[in-house]
Nucleic acid binder design. Sequence first.
DNA 1: ACCTGAACACCGTTCAAGT
DNA 2: ACCTGAACACCGTTCAAGT
Lengths: 197, 197
Amino acid sequence: MATRNSYTLAMPTPDRTSLPDIVAAGRHILEADGLGAVTMAAVAARVGVRPPSLYKRVRDRDDLIRLVAESAVAEMGVELAAAEQDSGDPRARLGDLIGALRTYARTHPAVYRLVFTPVTEGVELPRDLLEANSAPLFAVVAELAGPDHALEAARTVTAWATGFVAMELNGAFRLGGELDAAFEYGIDRLARAIADD
Amino acid sequence: MATRNSYTLAMPTPDRTSLPDIVAAGRHILEADGLGAVTMAAVAARVGVRPPSLYKRVRDRDDLIRLVAESAVAEMGVELAAAEQDSGDPRARLGDLIGALRTYARTHPAVYRLVFTPVTEGVELPRDLLEANSAPLFAVVAELAGPDHALEAARTVTAWATGFVAMELNGAFRLGGELDAAFEYGIDRLARAIADD
DNA sequence: ACCTGAACACCGTTCAAGT
DNA sequence: ACCTGAACACCGTTCAAGT
């Protein structure tokens, strides 16, 4: 019965790739060879298509990079949420959360960098995604600092955590010494600093 | 007496630019239009030369960018040292120092970013330059934390400061509220946190 | 409706040829 | 000894032509 339906639905060329495939390819190349290696040609080759075909699914390279960053943020959110499952006292949970962030940065350095340093001026990550990611930390900090100073305390802790991880990632701690000890020292002092009052 | 001397010294083409000029041009374009705008063509045009001529003074674009970063680090060091002149108690000097870093980031965002985020994997800034820049902060922190915990304390403060400035620069503080207040709160808690023991 | 080759503008870089 | 035009490889992107 090759009638109207099978005729109008017949696709002259079947889809040879998909947006998720393209984003996954970008992710893979980013982690393997860095942001500079994420070219339209490299991504196209990885999904088995020619570069112009990518423009059917993404507006341009910036758009693709943004989608990669979004997928990474979502993944990080899952890992942060998982880290908090092992609940204990607030101080311990704070260490677990920031430790999970640090672990993610070490295991996915290029992806972490992409998320935490704005690659292109105009490109923004969706606000609700970022809020979802920072929610667990915000909650623990509120427990430690009390509701009055929750916002400032969260900012202080977040600034320290992202600063520490960035410096570790960039090899900016040049004076030797135990980095794990510096991390524990920092967490400890921060937790006390925002709690005391 | 157009003799041997004037003959051997005669330069077939006089220098039309210089390394300092090239670095300054790169700096200017970086601050005005961002890192992506610092192309060999743009820099060459600004110093009045054709792109291939730049390769007489710099190895390649990465080399040029590195020189721009170095000149920026040197300039930042001067401003940090100047901020510390207005000496008061250690707590106040700590605020002045980090405040100067923050001011520099706000007035030279692209340059600040270049210095604090490694643009290319292999490129390193000279160690003594970075040490000179962190020396004032290290000294103040040592006063506050005592010699035993000076290193860990300095790392904690530096991580917080660079993290805070980076987040402010990237618009990562999305929940409103007074940023200056958050800054003061952070400095205050940090100073107490590393002092207490 | 997606895919492709051809083409374009732009970029970093090299090199032989000028002076 | 520095400067230049010409050339090359590579990149992002567009578009008409295929199916």
